[in-house]
């Protein structure tokens, strides 16, 4: 699933980048405008290691931060991989896979972001899928949106988050926010697979049950 999404986004023109799963708070939070007081930074939400020197990354965004610091716009990147949250119940796992994309250029706007999201969702779920955008909140994007698709049962199901990169984040990466704007999106690979193939329990992905794996081989 992850590979097929990456292939798709790569074909759109996103370059695939990689980065560490053990991160500093600076890259995982500060640079992304996630303030020290943000609940996500609490010990009950994030795994800390080495006496709080590092965190297990809570998203793949720090990979994008590192890449933005090393490059000049225009640039379009996709980061993917394992991310960690201190959750463990029927609907949340302490580790899951995320794919995040960012595109920074002079003329980038929310209307274009919508076009990109339509292309991604239609490629994954077919041209006839109904989708909607809802206002949401992420510290690193403004405006922020969540995207839902309509299930066969007529229910709206959330599939990804997206938005215009918060100018604070661009400035943190030495990109002049007066000249450049960015669009960004992020999705959970397991969630997409669950919606696409009708898997009801996210824990199935990590049980290593051959009966399960055989269906996705």
């Amino acid at each position: 699933m992850k590979d097929s999404i990456l292939s798709l986004l790569n074909s759109f023109g996103f370059q695939i980048i990689d980065g560490p799963e053990i991160e500093t708070e600076e890259y995982n939070f500060d640079m992304l405008n996630i303030k020290e007081s943000h609940p996500a930074r609490q010990m009950h939400d994030t795994f800390y290691v080495n006496d709080k020197e590092y965190v297990l990354r809570t998203h793949t965004s720090p990979v994008q931060i590192r890449t933005m610091l090393e490059n000049k716009p225009p640039m379009a990147f996709i980061s993917s991989g394992k991310v960690y949250r201190k959750d463990d119940d029927a609907t949340h796992l302490p580790m899951f896979h995320q794919i995040e994309g960012i595109y920074v250029d002079k003329e980038v706007n929310f209307a274009q972001l919508k076009d990109l999201i339509y292309k991604i969702v239609h490629s994954l779920f077919g041209e006839n899928i109904k989708l909607r955008f809802r206002p949401s909140y992420f510290p690193f994007t403004e405006p922020s949106a969540e995207v839902d698709i309509m299930s066969k049962e007529g229910e709206w199901l959330e599939i990804l988050g997206c938005g215009i990169v918060n100018p604070i984040v661009l400035e943190n990466c030495n990109i002049c926010s007066d000249d450049y704007k960015g669009l960004a999106f992020g999705l959970g690979v397991e969630r997409i697979a669950m919606l696409k193939y009708g898997v009801r329990d996210i824990r199935e992905f990590y049980k290593s049950n051959l009966d399960f794996l055989r269906q996705f081989k």
């Binding site: 292939s7 790569n10 023109g13 996103f14 225009p74 379009a76 595109y103 274009q112 919508k114 206002p135």
Partner: peptide, 20 residues
């Protein structure tokens, strides 16, 4: 959000466009 009309997006050609 749903009334903002989408506008066609085309990403610039990138130097290294190969999958690992």
């Amino acid at each position: 959000y749903n009334k903002i009309r989408s506008k066609s997006i085309s990403l610039p050609k990138i130097k290294n466009n190969k999958l690992d």
